[in-house]
Design a binder for these strands. Sequence first.
DNA 1: ACACGTCGGGACGCAACCGTACCGTCCCTG
DNA 2: CAGGGACGGTACGGTTGCGTCCCGACGTGT
Lengths: 211, 211
Amino acid sequence: MLRGEITTAIRRAVMQELAAVGYGRLSIEAVARRAGVGKTAIYRRWSSKLDLVLEVVSAAAGRRFPLPDTGGLRGDLEMVFLIMTRALGHPLAAQIVPDLLAEAARNPQIGQTLQRVLRANQRDIGGQVIGRAIARGELPPDTDLDLAVDLIVGPLYWRLAVSRAPLAAEDLPRLATVVAAALGVASQPVVPDEPDVQVPDVIVSTDSGGP
Amino acid sequence: MLRGEITTAIRRAVMQELAAVGYGRLSIEAVARRAGVGKTAIYRRWSSKLDLVLEVVSAAAGRRFPLPDTGGLRGDLEMVFLIMTRALGHPLAAQIVPDLLAEAARNPQIGQTLQRVLRANQRDIGGQVIGRAIARGELPPDTDLDLAVDLIVGPLYWRLAVSRAPLAAEDLPRLATVVAAALGVASQPVVPDEPDVQVPDVIVSTDSGGP
DNA sequence: ACACGTCGGGACGCAACCGTACCGTCCCTG
DNA sequence: CAGGGACGGTACGGTTGCGTCCCGACGTGT
C-alpha cells in the first residue's frame, strides 16, 4: 500500500528538478534528495527515469478543458491567449516546456508523449476556434488548420517561452486583433508583388574564426 | 602555435555533440573522443565547458548579413522566412538552437550570449523590414517593433523548431502574405466585440492522479 | 495486539567524467 | 639540423549517479 503523500512529494520534486537542471541532467538521486525520500520509494513506483518523467509530466499537463465560446473570433483568440499566458506564465512550466520540447527532438518517447499531451491539445483548441469562426462566417471554410495553429501559437510561445520578454495583459487584445486579421487572409491566393532577388547564403558553419 | 585543423575538428565535434546529447549532457571527454583529439588539446584552448560552448556557438551563429530589399513588405518577409527556413533547416541548428534557448532560461551566461548573437540579430532584421515598410508607406510609423518581431519570427520558429512539421517551399509566400496582413493592423486601436466570459482556471499542477 | 509492507538510510560494485599531470612522438620554426 | 612546442594517449584521485540489496523503524489494517 503505497503512501500517497510520498507519491505527491516525488511528483513535485520531479517538476522542480526538471525546471532546475533539465531532463538531460535530471538524476533519480537528486529527485529523492529533494523530495526527502529514499531512492527505493521512487523505484517502487516507476521503473526508470524516462518512465518517471513521462508519467509525471503527462499527469501534470494532460488536463483538457472546454474553451468557452465568446461569440467572436477575436474574443476566442484572446481567450486562448489568456489561457496560454497563464499556463506558460507558471515558472515551472516556463522552464520545463521548452526543455522537454528540445529533448523531444532527440528522444522519440518524449516526442510522442508531448505530441499527445501538448500539441494535440493545441490542435484541438485551434480546431475549435477555427471551426466556430467558419460556422459564423468569419473565416472561409477552406482555412488551413496547420497554418492557423502556427499563427495562433507561434507568436505567443515565442514571446513567453523563448524571448521571455514581459507581456502586459493589455497586449493580449491587440495580439488577438492582429492574429484574427492574419487568419482572415490565410486562404486568399498569393499575389506576388516583385520578382526574385538574390538570396544570401546562410549556413550554420562550424569553422569560422578562432578563439 | 596551436594547429588550426585541430581547433576546427574540436569545433565541429562540439556542434555535433551538442546536437546529439544537448548542453546539459555534453562532456569534454565525448567531444575529445568525437574529434579524435586528446582532452589536453581542448583545455589548451578553452578553460571550461561553458567557455567552449559559448565561443563555438557564437562563432558559428554570429554572422550578420545584409537583408536584400525586395521593394515590398510581402517580399521582404518572404526573404526573411526563406533565410530562417534555411538556417533552422540545417539539422545541427534545428537540434542545437531550441536546446540552448531552453538552457538559457537557467544559465545567465548562455542567455546573454544567445541574446547577443541570435535575438539582437532578429531585432535588427525586424527593424530593417519594418523600417522600410514604414518608409514606403505600407505600415504606419508607430508600428510596435516588439509585436512585429513576435509575429514574424514566432510562427516559423514554432513550425520549424517546435512542431517540426514539414514545410513546403510553396508555403512561404502564403505565410508572408498572412503576416503582412497582421502587421497591417498591428497599430490599429482594439475594438472589443463581446464582453468578458468566465476564464477557466488552468494551472500546471504537480499532484493530479497516480500511477 | 500482531504481522506485513512501506518507509528512510546506508552500502554495494560499476561506470562515466572531471581537471591535471606526465609520457614519447611529431612537426614546425629558426 | 637542432630545439621547442603542441600533439594523442594514458593514468591519476575524486565526484556523481546508476540500480540493487539489506537494515531497523514505523504505521496501517485487521
